[in-house]
Design a protein around this nucleic acid. Structure first.
Length: 422
RNA sequence: GCGGACGUAGCUCAGUUGGUUAGAGCGCCGGUUUGUGGUACCGGAGGUCGCGGGUUCGAGCCCCGUCUUCCGCCCCA
């Protein structure tokens, strides 16, 4: 790198070659699978009025103040780069009047931004796929949405790398009574809690449950579970979600420590987790958020969804999808260029990826074709022009024969091979 | 925001207790009589050792600061 080369912003990454192909594959796969479930892709702005996200977060101290990319535009309005996808989707639902035509099934993919310290699979600009099913309050909707997430992971070939952890947060009433009991319990053991957890007791007591501090574990063991505080309807909902997962044939383990900090969450919470990515093991996660649309100024509307981190999913893919192998067109001498371009144009019109280098002798062009992972080389010089043929060389087999130019499309169309360029 | 580790060619890394013009492999470029690649041989380019200070006769190596990346913590919408 040269002396005064510009540097990328901390926590941002370029996606080139294999990396971009991995990302594109994750997105294309998720788009296809969610499509099978009747979801349609939405694209919302990457920045919104700050209130869109601030509202969805309430006044969760750290998150709003320290971890969002917030700035003023020239008109003095406070804007924020979206830190996640759900709030924007809900805002779009409301502003487009779609609360009148529920349910809506939205799939999205794109960059998100959080001002955090980077680690592997956790960047300041990162990318997510996500799906939101808005307007369905039945437990079966939860089961089907989770199943859809499982299917995406399966289609990516990584379902064996993850386990599905499931929990219920109950409805607002159940959670309130549980929370009270929890705070009372932890307060009794306050001095046995870690310093962090003593702070959490003040502003986010549920988070003590997934504390990593060793000294917290014995206290957490004895903490009251939500189970005993669930009211009847919440209990039925929870039972029905699990029954639904059985019907859809989705395996899960119940993990009572999965919590969500915000009030609009209710009932189902789930995470697909891997142990292959260190501390960033959650690969796709979601839950029910029946209170959010109302928070955005719409009518009370039930909703459930999930989001998955593309970086993490891309890292788990066994191998990157191959680039499509091109066909290399190699004219020898200036007179061959025009017929070569004609052939190349025909191949492209037939849907075949074709490239021609502008310079270099035959040897150089062959080397270049090889490096580009070309499947075939089409060589034509004066001798070929004179007899109305071209040389068609199979670069993987090393065999070469003369063919009529008109036969090329037919010969190459069914031999779509893959190469390993970039 | 807190704690820790790393930072030498495009990539992966070597570089003895600080001592002359900083190395290797891979990759890249060129050549091996000019119409044949992926494999052999020969040659070449490319680094002010992340950046900035300091100590020293002398710093890639020691000290301080700073930036990045990575590992944890906090947070995780």
């Amino acid at each position: 790198m040269s002396l005064n080369a510009v540097k990328p912003v901390r926590g941002t990454h370029d996606l080139i070659g294999e990396q971009q192909r991995r990302h594109a594959h994750v997105i294309a796969t998720a788009r296809r699978i969610t499509g099978l479930y009747g979801f349609e892709e939405w694209a919302t702005p990457v920045f919104e009025d700050t209130s869109v996200f601030a509202r969805s977060l309430g006044d969760t101290s750290d998150v709003v103040s320290k971890e969002m990319y917030t700035f003023s535009d020239r008109g003095g309005e406070s804007l924020t780069l979206r830190p996640e996808g759900t709030a924007g989707i809900c805002r779009a639902l409301v502003t487009n009047g779609l609360t009148q035509s529920l349910p809506q099934k939205a799939f999205y993919a794109g960059p998100m931004f959080r001002y955090e310290r980077p680690q592997k699979g956790r960047y300041r600009q990162f990318h997510q796929i996500g799906a939101e099913l808005i307007g369905s309050g039945e437990p079966l909707a939860d089961a089907e949405t989770i199943t859809m997430g499982r299917d995406v992971l399966e289609a990516l070939g990584i379902v064996d790398e993850v386990v599905l952890e499931l929990n219920t947060l109950g409805d607002a009433e159940s959670r309130a009574t549980w929370r009270t009991a929890l705070v009372a319990y932890f307060s009794d053991y306050r001095n046995r809690l870690s310093e962090d957890s003593q702070l959490r007791l003040e502003h986010n007591p549920l988070r003590i449950l997934d504390s990593k501090a060793a000294e917290d574990q014995p206290v957490i063991e004895g903490a009251p579970g939500l189970e005993q505080y669930l009211n009847d309807s919440s209990r039925h909902f929870w039972d029905d979600v699990r029954r639904g997962l059985d019907v859809f044939n989705v395996a899960y383990t119940v993990n009572p420590r999965i919590v969500r900090g915000l009030d609009y969450y209710s009932h189902t919470a789930f995470e697909f987790v891997t142990n292959r990515l260190g501390a960033q093991g959650t690969v796709l996660a979601g839950g029910r958020y029946d209170g959010l649309v109302e928070e955005m100024g719409g009518p009370a509307t039930p909703a459930i969804g999930w989001a998955g981190g593309i970086e993490r999913l891309a890292m788990l893919l066994d191998e990157a999808p191959d680039a499509t192998a091109p066909i290399a067109i190699i004219p020898l001498g200036a007179v061959a260029e025009t017929p070569a371009i004609r052939i190349m144009t025909e191949l492209r019109a037939a849907g075949l990826r074709s490239e021609m280098a502008y310079r270099g002798n035959l040897k150089k062009r062959m080397e270049r074709a090889n490096r580009a992972g070309a499947s075939y080389a089409i060589i034509l010089g004066e001798a070929e022009l004179a007899s109305g043929v071209v040389q068609l060389r199979d670069l993987s087999e090393g065999q070469q024969r003369e063919v009529a130019p008109d036969d090329l499309v037919k010969l190459l169309s069914h031999t779509k091979k893959t190469g390993s360029s970039v």
